[in-house]
């Protein structure tokens, strides 16, 4: 049968920052083809295909909380594959090859991680499970 794709709405204007992204206006509708754990979602309109940040998309059919994983306060061990410097006060700055605990894997690609007493958002694409090869 036909593949039914979910429709999402842009919550704000988004201007592409690399070649294969889409630029869209607030209120535009897109179909989501693939949800990458990086938080970049592959989307299509009638005339274009490309990547959009999940943080700018909301489901047309009301909140889709069933897809959000629950936090795991015990934490799951990951390590950073690249350094990242916090740009917002709720993010965490870490160097490369630092072991941290992931306590909430969010679909938008910003995971809540814990390092000692510190907690904050970190890009999931800069994390890998400890012990796994890059």
């Amino acid at each position: 049968g036909p593949i039914i794709l979910q429709t999402y709405r842009l919550i704000a204007e988004y201007k592409k920052s690399s070649k294969h992204e889409l630029s869209m206006k607030a209120g535009d509708l897109v179909e989501v083809v693939e949800k990458s754990t990086s938080g970049w979602w592959f989307c299509q309109t009638e005339s274009h295909r490309g990547w959009l940040p999940a943080t700018y998309l909301e489901p047309l059919e009301g909140p889709d909380e069933s897809e959000d994983q629950e936090p795991n306060y015990e934490g799951e061990l990951y390590q950073t594959t690249k350094p990242y410097k916090a740009e917002q006060e709720d993010e965490i700055s870490l160097e490369q090859d630092v072991t941290i605990e992931v306590i909430h894997k969010l679909l938008d690609g910003w995971w809540v991680v814990r390092k000692g007493e510190q907690t904050g958002y970190y890009p999931s694409m800069l994390l890998q499970k400890t012990g796994e090869k890059r």
Partner: peptide, 22 residues
């Protein structure tokens, strides 16, 4: 390829849509 996601982290939500501190 167009099907490779961008290599930079996606932006945080627009300011008015940001979640509260974890």
């Amino acid at each position: 390829s167009i099907r490779e996601p961008p290599t930079n982290p996606p932006p945080r939500p627009p300011a008015e849509h940001r979640r509260k501190r974890p």
